[in-house]
């Protein structure tokens, strides 16, 4: 009796995992050492971090190329394809939870902690310790300005952030065009729309950098400017990091499309990255609403 399971491909031994673990260790240990190092060991730590980083980059590239090669050899059954899909789907779910932690922190601070510090609600007596502190959001004056000086101004949501929202939402749309085109085997359009997506992503990142620069130099809005700065930067920062990764992956995909890879039927890598990109987009919309506007 023959079934599809017959073809489930169990790869042979592979040295990527162990190397990737070592790389991860170098990165983790290196980062720890960089952050805690005394002056004389700082360089060594930095070197370690760099080695780890280069290693992991190298491994990711070769690991993925290997997978791509295996796919090209036709080793992957539809069942295998489903495994990858489930895998990517659940990976994105875990990413959602990562952001959820920071959003949760933001809501907790705004709905509970700050009102208490400002003298409202069941724990309003806490205000005794911070005489004169008034709860407001955005929090311009922290409870103890001598330790954490609040921001002077905040980012105006209707300039760069609005533009960035448009860019990112548009990029999701262009990516969908590209996907449609790929399915119809219109490869020129595929690469065209993909390239547009990359450009939009890069533009987004560019404006993000501009915004950060302004925040630090003109608005007095930094990581250290109280809880507003803390939540602002951790949310937008990790989002920006994800956009960076997404853009890099899109570039990889673009190169592969240009090299003639992917067919209208089989293009899992393309789809996975598209999902990722849409996820990053959705997070941004959440950010735009809860971090910038409200």
């Amino acid at each position: 009796m023959q079934t599809e399971h017959q073809e489930y491909y169990v790869p042979d031994q592979s040295y990527y995992p162990i190397l990737a673990s070592i790389a991860l260790f170098f990165m983790a240990f290196g980062s720890g050492a960089v952050l805690t190092a005394a002056e004389n060991t700082g360089d060594l730590a930095m070197l370690m971090l760099l080695i780890g980083f280069v290693m992991i980059l190298f491994i990711i590239i070769s690991w993925f190329s290997k997978v791509a090669a295996e796919s090209r050899q036709g080793l992957y059954s539809p069942q295998m394809d489903r495994s990858f899909r489930w895998g990517m789907g659940w990976f994105i779910s875990s990413e959602v939870m990562f952001f959820a932690a920071f959003f949760g922190a933001l809501f907790y601070i705004r709905v509970l902690a700050l009102p208490w510090l400002g003298g409202e609600g069941e724990k309003g007596v806490s205000n005794m310790l911070w005489e004169g502190f008034v709860n407001q959001w955005p929090l311009m004056t922290t409870p103890d300005p001598s330790q954490f000086k609040g921001p002077e101004k905040i980012v105006d949501p209707w300039h760069i952030p609005l533009l960035n929202t448009i860019l990112l939402v548009a990029s999701s749309v262009t990516l969908t065009f590209s996907h449609k085109a790929l399915k119809l085997n219109k490869r020129h359009w595929t690469s065209f729309w993909l390239a547009v997506t990359v450009v939009l992503g890069v533009t987004f990142l560019y404006y993000q950098v501009v915004e950060y620069h302004e925040a630090y130099t003109e608005l007095g809005l930094t990581l250290a400017s109280g809880i507003y700065g803390s939540t602002f930067f951790i949310l937008t920062g990790f989002h920006g990091f994800h956009v960076t990764l997404g853009t890099l992956m899109l570039i990889c995909i673009l190169v592969r499309v240009l090299e003639g890879e992917f067919s209208g039927k089989k293009h899992f890598a393309f789809e996975a990255i598209a999902w990722y990109w849409h996820f990053v987009d959705v997070v941004w919309v959440g950010l735009f609403i809860f971090v910038y506007i409200l």
């Binding site: 806490s126 330790q147 990581l223």
Partner: peptide, 11 residues
């Protein structure tokens, strides 16, 4: 320098 867990900065 963030203040997630420090009331002095609003955390």
């Amino acid at each position: 320098g963030t203040s997630f867990f420090s009331a002095a900065g609003g955390g």
